[in-house]
Design a protein around this nucleic acid. Structure first.
Length: 423
RNA sequence: GGAGGAGUGUCCGAGUGGUUUAAGGAGGCGGUCUUGAAAACCGUUGUACCGCAAGGUACCGGGGGUUCGAAUCCCUCCUCCUCCGCCA
């Protein structure tokens, strides 16, 4: 959510930000409503002031046994006006909030202006895509081949975009989760969190998924619960409506969760394999920082996520998303893209965003800069550290052998207990 | 799911319609005293919104209502505790 004062006082900056994104928002309606609200607020507060004064006088008169019926009668009439104004103001505030909640964040100045993913900027590459002396298979061919993935039974049990992982496949998922959590908690200083997978509306509004992206979410039919699309939601909302100590910052959390996405609008895309599933595992990194430190923490967050790929020996590149490709809440976002031989290209495996105070304002997450100082909004950041399902796909494709077996990356051997996966 | 109890400021805690602009205590901050510290004493200590300012308005779990006036009365929702039932 943008600062209402920024919209009011620096409309041009907001307009420029929106146009860089290609977003169309009703800013003029907003300003008109805002002005109307202030006008009515002024009037009603004056009336209330009078009412408060007169009511005290009534109390005083009654305490002295005197008649106050004249004053009471007078206030009865004003009461109606107060009630009307109050409800009008509530109405306007609802509308203002409604608009404010669907305005995306303003991109940071370092973000390249562009309309879609073709204008993203490649920042750096790591590792050399392997040259195969045989025709590499797709990850699902490899997985099905060695009996660790079962799509047919998953379709029977649940439907399309699900997979049953079996034996060392299941163990590989678990090993990767543990490997990533160990890395981030032991070497990068994150505190491990295991949050709820079902959250309420307020949490999803806090991080920006609601009200605009309801169709991407799975909603429970009984109770006001949604399945989390990412651990970002429950973990960021841990500190909703809180005032944090400056000394605590930055707060760094790492969380494993399953993630659930409806993939509305992705029909026909990535239907093969486990690249795009309704349910997938992810280790997520979340930070709460002081505003002046968030961009430096953002770079470090990207490094922390990159370390996972480096240790696994998976070639990847870092991409800075352009204004038109950024998520709704982000001010700046880097994607990590891993090399997938069967696609003959890099595919997103991690997304690391700085939201500045956009989420903090929605979720009311503040900190006190010093003793007695006024609370200010923190900056929130998060990034995949990293998506487990896509990592499985990347390992199966990059580490496959001609006989259909898969070499286990060295970093994972202590977790899996074997050096090679085969049928 | 059923029955009962409870939610007050950073914390504890008083307060069932009118000087409550929320008592009192603890903690924090500032000061006096002291070589220093402790103790004692004095002062101070929430958030948001409107306003150039003076100032005003709102907030006692959330929302709505009654009333000239609500922490206090009514409705509704949420959370926590106790007991019962069910349950991994």
């Amino acid at each position: 959510m943008l600062d209402i004062k920024l919209v009011r006082n620096d409309l041009e900056k907001v307009r420029a930000g929106m146009s860089k994104r290609g977003a169309n928002v009703p800013l003029d309606d907003f300003l008109k409503l805002d002005e109307e609200r202030r006008k009515k607020l002024n009037e009603v507060e004056q009336l209330k002031n009078r009412r408060n004064t007169v009511s005290k006088e009534v109390g005083r008169l009654k305490a002295q046994g005197q008649d106050a019926s004249l004053l009471i009668k007078e206030m009865q009439e004003e009461g109606d006006r107060v009630q009307t104004l109050d409800s009008e103001i509530r109405n306007i505030e609802d509308k203002l909030l409604e608009i404010l909640l669907v305005i995306p964040n303003i991109p940071h100045e370092s973000v390249p202006v562009g309309k879609d993913e073709t204008e993203n900027q490649i920042i750096r590459n790591w590792g050399e895509p392997r040259k195969f002396d045989f025709a590499p298979k797709t990850h699902d061919e490899v997985g099905v081949g060695i009996g660790i993935m079962d799509f047919e039974r998953a379709a029977k049990i649940s439907g399309a975009r699900f997979v049953v992982m079996r034996g060392f496949g299941a163990k590989l998922e678990r090993a990767l989760c543990n490997f990533m959590l160990d890395l981030h908690t032991k070497e990068h200083g994150y505190t491990e969190i295991f949050p709820p997978f079902l959250v309420n509306r307020d949490s999803l509004t806090g991080t920006g998924q609601l009200p605009k992206f309801e169709e991407d979410l799975f909603k429970c039919v009984n109770g006001d619960y949604y399945l989390i699309p990412t651990a970002e939601v429950p973990v960021t909302n841990i500190h909703r409506d809180e005032i944090l100590d400056a000394a605590q910052l930055p707060i760094k959390y790492a969380a494993y969760t399953a993630c659930f996405r409806a993939e509305a609008g992705a029909a026909g895309r990535d239907t093969r394999g486990i690249i795009r599933q309704h349910q997938f595992n992810k280790v997520e990194l979340v930070k709460f920082t002081k505003p002046e430190e968030s961009y430096q923490e953002h770079e470090q967050l990207v490094n922390d996520a990159e370390t996972v790929l480096k240790k696994l020996g998976l070639p990847y590149r870092v991409v800075l998303l352009c204004t038109g490709d950024q998520g709704f809440s982000a001010a700046k976002c880097y994607d990590l893209e891993v090399w997938l031989p069967s696609f003959n290209t890099y595919r997103e495996i991690s997304s690391c965003s700085n939201f500045e105070d956009f989420q903090a304002r929605r979720a009311n997450i503040r900190y006190r800069p010093g003793v007695g100082a006024k609370p200010e909004f923190v900056h929130t950041l998060n990034g995949s550290g990293i998506a487990v399902g896509r990592t499985v796909a990347a390992i199966l494709e990059n580490y496959q052998n001609e006989d259909g077996s898969v070499t286990v990356p060295e970093a994972l051997r202590p977790y899996l207990g074997v050096e090679r996966l085969y049928e």
